[in-house]
Computed example of a mutant assay.
Amino acid sequence: MSDRDDIVELDALDRHIIYRLQHDARKTSASTIAEEMDVAASTVRNRINRLEERGVIKGYNLDVDYERAGFQLHTLIICNAEIPEREQLAREALEIDGVVDVQEVMTGSENIHVEVVGSDGDDLSRIGQELDALGLQVVDEDIIRNEYVHPYEGFAPEK
């Protein structure tokens, strides 16, 4: 059985916790969520721990302004991988210096999306060559200007 087959049933409190943490995990306290849901802060902390242990909450991502940090080239590299090798190649791509995110796409030929950062064109060339050496075919490269995220509305509280 894979991790995806082990479905965790979420109640209203679990969904609210996830929604609030997706919105801004850094500035959202267990106490704030507890007040909103009329439960004890310890209940919220226990639920967060359980959601983490069960793999529903897999981590907390930092939103970095790469340009301000001196990495002018924040780029999305679209690759193609043979289906039987796709997952392994995606995991290996994540190990390349400068790669910050890899997504496996289930449909189409452009089935690996690799987000990279670099300070100059040489960085991007090196990363492209390393992706090619892994066996990924680079199909396209797009410079990312901004990225916007939003919590999944399916976890939003009932209105």
Results as ranks from 00 to 15, higher is better:
106 M>Y: 14
51 L>K: 00
43 T>R: 06
91 R>S: 11
51 L>P: 00
51 L>S: 05
95 E>I: 10
116 V>D: 03
11 D>N: 14
151 P>F: 04
27 K>H: 13
111 N>V: 05
101 D>V: 02
98 G>Q: 04
93 A>C: 10
66 Y>M: 11
92 E>W: 06
17 I>C: 02
123 D>Q: 08
84 P>Q: 07
65 D>Y: 10
71 F>K: 04
50 R>G: 01
112 I>R: 02
29 S>Y: 08
126 R>D: 08
10 L>F: 02
115 E>G: 02
101 D>Q: 14
20 R>V: 01
66 Y>I: 04
25 A>T: 03
151 P>L: 03
25 A>F: 09
107 T>L: 12
47 R>W: 00
62 L>S: 12
136 L>H: 02
124 L>F: 04
70 G>C: 06
41 A>C: 05
139 V>E: 14
115 E>L: 13
19 Y>E: 10
14 D>N: 08
69 A>E: 15
117 V>P: 00
101 D>P: 08
34 A>S: 12
96 I>V: 07
4 R>M: 10
159 K>M: 06
53 E>W: 00
80 N>S: 13
134 L>F: 11
83 I>S: 11
32 T>R: 08
2 S>R: 09
12 A>N: 12
30 A>W: 08
30 A>K: 04
115 E>T: 13
151 P>C: 09
118 G>L: 09
144 I>E: 03
82 E>H: 13
86 R>G: 05
28 T>S: 07
66 Y>N: 03
5 D>L: 14
67 E>Q: 12
158 E>A: 13
93 A>P: 02
31 S>Y: 10
120 D>M: 10
130 E>A: 10
78 I>M: 12
130 E>Q: 15
129 Q>M: 11
38 D>W: 03
112 I>L: 13
33 I>P: 00
80 N>R: 14
72 Q>Y: 12
113 H>Y: 08
80 N>M: 13
